Computed example of a mutant assay.
Amino acid sequence: MGDKHTRTLVIVTVALCVLVFVATGRTIGLDRALHLVSGRGVGETWFENPLYLIVEPAAVLVLVFTHAWRSRVLLAIPSIAMLVAVVEHAAFYRPHTMFSRADAVQLMLILCAVMAVGGLLLRMRERSRVALAAAAEERARRDERLDMARELHDVVAHHVTGMLVQAQAALVVAAQDKDKACAMLPGIVDGGTEALGAMSAMVRTLRDNGTATATTDLTADLHQLAEKSGLPVLANIELAEVRPELGRSVLRIVQEALTNVRKHAFDATRVEVDVRSTSEVLLLSVVDNGRTRPAHSGGFGLVGMRERVSELGGRFFAGATGDGWLVTAELPLEVRA
């Protein structure tokens, strides 16, 4: 609670405690109230009005509940104790027509305990809600960071790997044929230009509150990706219209799979890309016949692909086939609850 609300609550609590004690004193005699001596009252007063006798304990119970719910612990404990003390004092020493003295004391004690427990439960519920909200916010931030990391890896690795392969090839042939090596330079420049363009597009996406633009023609983009990969790709694409976020993820998975072929399967002579959709799922596979593949590449490509598929509610597999390497995914066409 804020300082202003805390001060107000303290003032109301003190004022009510004084009022209850004064009402008790006016009812049984102030000297008897101070010395806790029972005896006959001093005559009927407005404090014995039935309406007041209902409002007074109700106000006490509301304050007990409020302190248990909202006040700081160091304030709530003495405040509740003070309220319970004055209301129990009143229940014990004031005359009652409907209850005995013992019944009145027990009833108020039970009601105060119920209100305190209710306020405490509500406090715990609110704290749990705040903790859950904080955890959800942290998960959202983590997911956003992971998505950014995957995008950065997919975009940069794809283009930079192509540049690296061409540069390595140029170094190999430079000693024997400088003209052929020089002919490879424009491809490296084009790869760098495409990398910068992709990075700029990703930065614009992040500036637009993370709303990534998905592919509008997935079939055409997949064919273009296969043509620009520099690999002997045989593409078989049979797709119906898919939702934008699914199309974007499919494009990234295929892109990363082809990047891994270029990086790790140097002797691959055939790469087959198969993407087709059924009535319920989209099936994707990228398989190569390369055998030159280290057991542990140390990269995040497979992790990123697996995370993308998992977020879409699909299934993913990547591993050796005996004749090469296979990446396959099954993705639902519709969002699964």
Rank of each mutant, 00 (worst) to 15 (best):
G2S: 15
D3Y: 09
L16W: 01
C17K: 03
L19H: 11
F21K: 03
A23F: 08
W46A: 14
V60P: 07
F65Q: 01
R70L: 14
R72D: 14
A81W: 02
M82G: 15
V84A: 15
Y93R: 08
R94G: 04
P95E: 15
Q106P: 03
L107S: 11
L111H: 00
L120Q: 14
E126C: 06
L146N: 08
M148S: 07
A149I: 04
E151G: 08
H153V: 10
A167E: 00
A167F: 10
A169K: 12
L171P: 00
V173I: 13
Q176I: 04
D179A: 09
D179P: 03
A181K: 02
D190R: 03
A198N: 04
L206S: 00
R207N: 09
D208C: 05
T213N: 03
H223S: 00
L225C: 00
A226M: 05
K228N: 10
S229F: 11
L234D: 13
N236G: 04
A240Q: 14
P244Y: 12
L246K: 08
I253N: 06
K263E: 07
V271I: 15
D274Q: 10
E280H: 07
V281M: 13
L283I: 03
D288R: 13
R291T: 15
P294R: 13
G298E: 09
G301I: 04
V309A: 02
E311K: 06
L312F: 01
F316H: 13
A318V: 01
D323S: 09
R336I: 14
R336E: 13
